[in-house]
Design a protein around this nucleic acid. Structure first.
Lengths: 141, 141
DNA sequence: CCTTAATGTAACAAATTTTATTACAAATAA
DNA sequence: TTATTTGTAATAAAATTTGTTACATTAAGG
């Protein structure tokens, strides 16, 4: 599968939209064009995300006429934490400055301390999301 | 004060770095150039953030020779939640797609449901950060 | 086999966001 | 009155995100 250069700020929303559509119509092959029409984004973006979701083992796709995608695992086996983890690439609290001045006592240690705070915060979010599943989300519709 | 166009992904790190320096040397006027040297970013960025921190009521600056900035409130009165809130402009879980298809039953309601999830997640982060203060952070150095 | 419809993916283009820079007015200490 | 510092506008550059075009490959169904 192709790499996204980095975090795509709508990726969580896009991916959960795709998974919700697939979760609502189990055992049906949905086309990327149809999915793209529901999200109202470019079909190629959808196909990229579907490829990504295949890599995660969550989606199966079939090429050719009458092809499309469907879920490969039951919705209760996909936690929102897993989706978030798969899709996120920066901390909740953002990025750190890359080269603080090591000659400054604060600059020398700030990134170590920020890291602790960033990791702790990210883990809290993951823990909270681990109690929610795609099933819970899909049931709302 | 000037507007930043939108969320600056290193703003939390930058702002907490600035506040830590100010918190470590109370009652001293630190220049934006000196602060910029510690973070290793452009001094104009620092001055913009200092202006922003003045707007929050956290920092006092003095123009002219021998001028600079210092904290206007004690470090224990600034919570990390307040810093985060002041600086953040998107949800922890990212952005939503702007125009999902209202003709699709999922597309019609997805943003309402995503909003609930996004707000809930953001609030959890804020609650957790509200138990930490700038004092706690600065004490680590 | 041939046509049609779908995925997969490369390559590139456009848009948006973030970061840095230049320039200079205004303020103030000494 | 000189040197230094903040404040901020304007713009440029860099990085990231999103969209588009193009086409090879695959597979269903006549």
């Amino acid at each position: 599968m192709i790499n996204f250069a980095s975090m795509n700020n709508t990726r969580f929303a896009t991916v959960i939209h795709i998974l919700t559509l697939l979760g609502k119509t189990p055992d049906q092959w949905l086309s990327s064009d149809w999915i793209a029409g529901s999200i109202h984004i470019n079909p190629v973006i959808v196909r990229k995300e579907l490829g990504f979701l295949q890599d995660q083992g969550w989606v199966i796709s079939k090429k050719g006429k009458e092809g499309g995608s469907m879920l490969g695992v039951p919705t209760h086996e996909i936690s929102l934490a897993a989706i978030y983890k798969a899709v996120k690439n920066t901390s909740v609290l953002g990025k750190k400055n890359q080269t603080p001045n090591p000659k400054c006592p604060i600059g020398k240690h700030i990134n170590k301390k920020l890291d602790q705070l960033f990791v702790e915060t990210d883990e809290m979010v993951s823990t909270a999301l681990s109690h929610k599943t795609l099933k819970n989300f899909v049931e709302q519709f």
